[in-house]
């Protein structure tokens, strides 16, 4: 039996698709190309195999995702992860929240911020810069967006420059996208312990 995880955690769950992923044996040439499958690389996650059903989107999505989260300059990687986490908490995407909280903790070499966010939610006690970043990501992630000039003023007051705020807009928005795939197309689960 697998157990669906419903509470936020940094312990990254297994993602179990609700639809049948593409079978690599039956994948088209275009799908194999988008999946970057080569004779020496045949390991593809079930998530990516699920997205391979829409290969045209998958092909553009991966480089765009990497650009927004990892391109040099602008906002620090840890702060982009905080933007991703704010969106994932609004959308209750347990899997994305786990992955990006874990990355934030790893980059910051501290679990303090994500411990507080998972324990106290939006009321968590954060420093002024993290507070402004998290609040903006949360507001932007509502439908329709609740972000306004006050959020921008808080980001400015906390010392963020235009390039940093742009990266925050992009990372929080990107998780509006990622959450609607991860949280909608699959369940975060714990697999029973297996012997290795």
């Amino acid at each position: 039996m697998t157990k669906v995880i419903t509470k936020f955690t940094r312990n990254v769950p297994h993602w179990q698709p609700r639809v049948k992923p593409v079978d690599l044996e039956e994948a088209s040439a275009e799908q194999l190309d988008a999946l970057k499958v080569t004779p020496s690389n045949t390991k593809v996650s079930e998530y990516v195999l699920t997205l391979a059903h829409d290969v045209e989107s998958l092909k553009v999505r991966s480089p765009l995702f990497n650009g927004i989260m990892y391109d040099k300059g602008g906002m620090s990687r840890a702060e982009r992860e905080l933007g991703a986490l704010g969106a994932s908490m609004v959308n209750h995407c347990i899997y994305c929240a786990a992955v990006h909280a874990a990355r934030h903790a790893q980059l910051e070499k501290s679990t303090e911020v994500t411990d507080r966010l998972f324990r106290d939610g939006r009321r968590a006690d954060l420093g002024p810069r993290d507070r402004a970043i998290f609040d903006f990501a949360v507001a932007l992630s509502e439908t329709p967006s609740q972000a306004g000039p006050d959020h921008m003023a808080a980001l400015k007051d906390a010392g963020l420059d235009e390039a940093e705020v742009l990266d925050l807009i992009l990372s929080a928005s990107l998780f509006g996208w990622a959450n609607r795939l991860m949280h909608v197309l699959g369940d975060p689960v714990r697999l029973p312990e297996t012997t290795s």
Binding site: S57, R61, P144, A147, M152, L166, I169, S173, W177, V184
Partner: peptide, 24 residues
């Protein structure tokens, strides 16, 4: 899902850029 998810992203980028333009 991909159609929906992309739009969620793009619509938030637009909302954010509009605020960015005014603030900076």
């Amino acid at each position: 899902c991909e159609l929906n998810a992309f739009l969620a992203y793009q619509l938030r980028v637009i909302a954010g850029l509009r605020l960015l333009k005014e603030a900076y």
